[in-house]
Design a protein around this nucleic acid. Structure first.
Lengths: 331, 331
DNA sequence: CTGAAAGCGCTAACAA
DNA sequence: TTGTTAGCGCTTTCAG
């Protein structure tokens, strides 16, 4: 058993209240008693029991992070950004992987409540109403990252996905491409990625280009989806470029094209989205819209901590700048 | 304020002890009272306060995970494996990024102690004595993953890095290569990766091939290290293959070779190590020694939980099987 | 400036 | 089978 506040009090010949005071820098404790206490603390290698403190103060200095999957390519950096900021403010994070399973999300939410986390960073691409009901019920400050609810009732950190996609497709058009395919999601469903399809459509429209469903593949955002999507598209269509709603898709598409001796970018321009690490080391290096993952995590955490501490927050719905990164997958 | 055990007791017309009993399935509580209590719980949407429970039972059902960097390519899967198992046994994980900074590691270790985690999964490539002293002092069950202490005093989960490297280099030799370079670490320093250099040396020796320091580059395990390492080596040496102590290195090396119009694998065979996700989607797909990352996390967590619960463990130093994955970066 | 004591929400003897 | 009660280790009134 490690030393408790009692042991320190006895060692220093004071009451536990006094020990607590020097621990928390409260009141002007007499310099000498303070010193005595500090010596006792050192001697006993005392460290306060945070669980006990938490019970009393109702503050656990821990924050829950709910994500689909830490072993994906996208979330680790967000989590890292979040943890770095948490660490600065002496918070710790409890990590929860949900695989987008709503039941699992809800169970974690409840467990986090039981463990009295002070706040939650919530990432999910399917923002179900019952999740929000639960969040309301739990009464724990919650910040949404990557996605957000439509009426912006909850604090959030995102990028403008529609505009990002718009810029991407515009870039492709500026490069002289005439027939631009799309691979990704296009169905709504409280998921941001469909906004990329919206951006794609708007870019075509504003450039007086026709939307052709035959070169639109809505199957998902994984490598396989890109692989299959492009095969499906080029089977019966001639394209000169493709906008992929994720870098994984872009990678899959490039690999499929390569197998068919179609050169990227000489024959087909390929754009990705997100700028995951692979995008920068893949061959060819992928031109993409970069989401500031680390910043999304750190900004989200900072916002959350402010809310927890009831500080004034001027803005609760952050839209962080994205960036078009020109690399080698487009001419 | 959420409902407490008192509220439930009042609602059900019983004592808090009875509520606690049905909560913990203790004794044979009368079926009827049990039902009453359960109804009260449901009505009040009561969930026990785990912090209070932890203070009493000295069990927090949380486990700390200390890793260098979750945003690296290597650790997310380990963490995922660990979390999945933790979740099965109703543990939660607190994630700590240390960047291999020993002071940060020690501080996290202490904080985890304050928060009364029941166990720690510790990953670090520099296992300092003072870390072990602290672990001893803290008296928290700790399992090492990826690395281990030399005398196997602490439970651990690793692979046989020396043998893995040996197999890799042997593979290269079997393919007919005569001059095999090495890029990675070679200095000891309580770090497993030097074992890969040992394996490299042994393979050369057992095949009566000469060790040539001029084609050995010891600079690190990152993409840049591979990039610079290979440039350094081929500047003045003719090689037909290179064994890289990490996939990142292999990627860097391949990119550098490509820039010089040296074809992989036609001109030079390149092998990696670890089998990170990129290895399977890179072009060319990288032949490598796969560490079972997910399993290392899950086995480590399972072992840790057993130790926490004082179950008999027959074996405390696991050496998991690695696998040579043949892909396209070798002829 | 310091100490005594109540209590955070729960579990676990001990009684009844 | 159930209730009473003493803490777990800490913070925080309230006195002194």
């Amino acid at each position: 058993m490690a030393a408790s506040i009692k042991d320190v009090a006895k060692e220093a010949g004071v009451s536990i209240a006094t020990v607590s005071r020097v621990l928390n820098d409260i009141n002007v404790v007499n310099e000498e008693t303070k010193k005595k206490v500090q010596e006792a603390i050192k001697k006993l290698q005392y460290r306060p029991n945070i669980v006990a403190r938490s019970l009393k103060t109702q503050k656990t200095s821990t924050i829950g992070i709910i994500i689909p999957d830490i072993s994906s390519q996208f979330y680790p950096e967000i989590v890292r950004g979040a943890e770095d900021v948490a660490n600065i403010y002496n918070y710790n994070i409890i990590l929860c992987n949900t695989d987008l399973d709503t039941e699992k999300e809800m169970e974690y939410l409840r467990v986090l409540r039981e463990k009295m986390v002070e706040g939650i960073l919530y990432m999910s691409s399917s923002l179900q109403p019952k999740i929000f009901n639960l969040i309301d019920e739990l009464q724990i400050p919650t910040v949404l990252i990557e996605n957000r609810d439509e009426d912006k009732k909850y604090p959030s950190v995102t990028i403008d996905n529609e505009a990002g996609a718009f810029d991407a497709v515009n870039y492709l058009i500026k490069k002289g491409n005439k027939k631009i395919a799309y691979i990704g999601n296009k169905d709504n469903g409280s998921n941001v990625t469909y906004l990329r399809y919206e951006g794609y459509k708007r870019a075509l429209k504003e450039n007086n280009m026709e939307l052709d469903d035959k070169v639109v593949y809505s199957g998902g955002l994984k490598v396989e989806d890109g692989y299959e999507g492009i095969i499906h598209i080029i089977e019966e269509n001639k394209i000169d470029s493709v906008f992929c709603a994720s870098d994984e898709c872009a990678i899959g598409a490039i690999n499929a094209l390569r197998e068919r001796n179609i050169k990227v970018p000489e024959d087909v321009d390929v754009m990705g989205f997100n700028d995951i690490y692979e995008a920068s080391i893949f061959y060819p290096k992928i031109t993409t819209i970069a989401q500031p993952m680390y910043d999304m995590g750190s900004v989200g955490m900072r916002l959350l901590i402010k809310i927890i501490n009831k500080q004034k927050v001027e803005e609760t719905n952050f839209e962080l700048p994205y960036q078009l990164i020109e690399r080698d997958s487009c001419k």
